[in-house]
Write a protein that binds this DNA or RNA. Structure first.
Lengths: 221, 221
DNA sequence: GCCGTTCAGTGATCTAGTCACACAAGACCG
DNA sequence: CGGTCTTGTGTGACTAGATCACTGAACGGC
């Protein structure tokens, strides 16, 4: 991918007026960040709006007791808009964003972001619909955590995160996805295994019966 | 309060350029809404940005099993910005906003909102910091639900919602505040009563020992 | 004062989270 | 190759929270 063409990667940006695209390209910089880097978090306020070109960013929350929960992921072609809001005020939030893979992103300085918002209706639409997506993601997380059973949530997560028929994750990592404890995941997975829905080995889970998992994932409650 | 002066009620708006204040006043309408009205929700997309002059709006989520959880409240002097985001896309969210009291609000049509965003840096700051507050509220809700013990959360909620030394709410309503079941609240309150922290009567709870509640509310876990 | 409705109390049972460990699978290394 | 270290997983016992199925108490309106 050439850096000059990255705008085409974003649905909402390719419709921008050419003049605005120009500004976007000339006043942003494409950066590469290594997997595992903390992009923002307590005491690490982001200075730029990031438009993700390659890789994924995981946004998660950590409790004082050490438990974690994944709030949402930003994937290639999406923007990390919530950080723009969190730039402004309320630095006391405890969520953090971590590069889950090596990533490449276009970084737009805050004042350029502000200029673009003022100048372009299309850019405003892009930004506000990105907000919209994140906020509905958060609503969804609240709903899942507050009301949905663990076994159902775990089945959903396995299906969602499977590449081919395998999920590469430790029980601890799955627990962090769902905001629960490792033991809970271990027990649920044992049960799934007993039902011959999965096979387990250290650090990976093979889905041997998607239909079984899908049936559970589709149930209410 | 005269309608002409409502802008002064909003910290972030009183600094607006006079020209912009003019637009805001002339192109918005002050509306009165009765307590209990659903302002937005599934199938009821809001057409305006609301700036709340009097009263409070409760934003909550309902599960298919009938349980509820309060996400946040909008109070006088604040704006209902998340609805602007949700106007745009993703109508499938299940959160709803209810007038908790009789309310008075300035309603700004969507296209005026867009014009103001384009025209005024101060207005942009106002909107983005409102977003910022709501999003950190949501992060906070996730953290509470996922990691905090019920007794602690209930103690906090009682202190937060007390007017004088009484909380006017049924057990069912407190359960909806915290996203739990009524029985859980009943049992926790019995325990608080046993410890002489509260007195109960139908629909009201009197805090007789704030210190006790505060001590519990301050504990971790 | 009666009656219907809304609130609150309670036991039994199930699911989830916590604590304290034991043990197994690789990783590293002499 | 066998030892030891780290990391991941299994398990029992216990506490907290959710669910179900009730009972009875309090209040509102005739």
């Amino acid at each position: 991918m050439t850096d000059e063409s990255w705008i085409t990667r974003f649905d909402g940006l390719s419709r921008l007026e050419p003049r605005i695209q120009e500004i976007l390209l000339s006043r942003s910089t494409v950066i590469d960040v290594e997997a595992g880097t903390v992009l923002f978090g307590p005491g690490r306020a982001p200075q730029n709006l990031l438009l993700l070109l390659e890789g994924t960013v995981r946004v998660q929350q950590t409790s004082d007791t050490g438990r974690e929960v994944v709030l949402y992921r930003v994937t290639a072609g999406e923007s990390c808009v919530l950080t723009t809001a969190c730039l402004l005020a309320y630095e006391d939030y405890s969520a953090e964003g971590v590069a889950e893979t090596d990533i490449r992103a276009a970084a737009i300085p805050r004042h350029v972001f502000d200029d673009l918002i003022a100048a372009s209706k299309e850019f405003r639409n892009f930004v506000f619909s990105a907000y919209s997506k994140r906020i509905t993601d958060l609503f969804h997380v609240v709903e899942e955590i507050a009301f949905r059973r663990m076994d159902i949530r775990l089945a959903q997560k396995l299906l969602e995160r499977a590449e081919g028929d395998t999920v590469k994750a430790t029980h601890q990592q799955m627990a962090a996805e769902l905001g629960t404890a490792r033991e809970v995941i271990s027990r649920q997975l044992s049960e799934f295994q007993r039902r011959d829905w999965i096979e387990q080995s250290r650090g990976t889970i093979r889905l041997t019966d998607r239909a079984g998992l899908e049936k559970l994932a589709a149930t209410q409650g």
